[in-house]
């Protein structure tokens, strides 16, 4: 099998994730898109690990999974907080950074 088929699949998933992060209004859906981006990265890590014949790619993919779990936990907590304060999780309404 070609290395590139995995890398290109990962690229597709990554770009779809980016699209989702930019366009989704719903906070939870943004989180889902971020998960897709992380998964794309994981495919790359494991693919290059297999390519080099070392388990280190998988090791780092596992670390990414663990970090992603933490990220979802915090992310959802933030979304819930926003929901509690604004009664909405529409990210386009969250514009406290407006200059």
């Amino acid at each position: 099998m070609l290395l590139n088929q995995f890398l290109l699949l990962a690229a597709v998933l990554f770009c779809l994730g980016v699209y989702g992060v930019i366009t989704r209004k719903n906070g939870v859906m943004v989180l889902m898109s971020i998960e897709m981006i992380l998964n794309a990265v994981n495919i790359n890590l494991v693919a290059f690990g297999a390519f080099n014949g070392t388990p280190i790619g998988s090791v780092f993919a596992l670390f990414v999974i663990a970090v992603a779990a933490a990220e979802v936990g915090i992310g959802l907590a933030i979304v819930l907080l926003i929901y509690r304060n604004k009664k909405s999780i529409d990210f386009s309404e969250v514009d406290l950074l407006k200059g």
Binding site: P55, A61, L62
Partner: peptide, 11 residues
């Protein structure tokens, strides 16, 4: 499934 293809069952 991609991980399985890549031989990393644990991942």
């Amino acid at each position: 499934v991609q991980f399985v293809f890549l031989g990393s069952e644990f991942a």
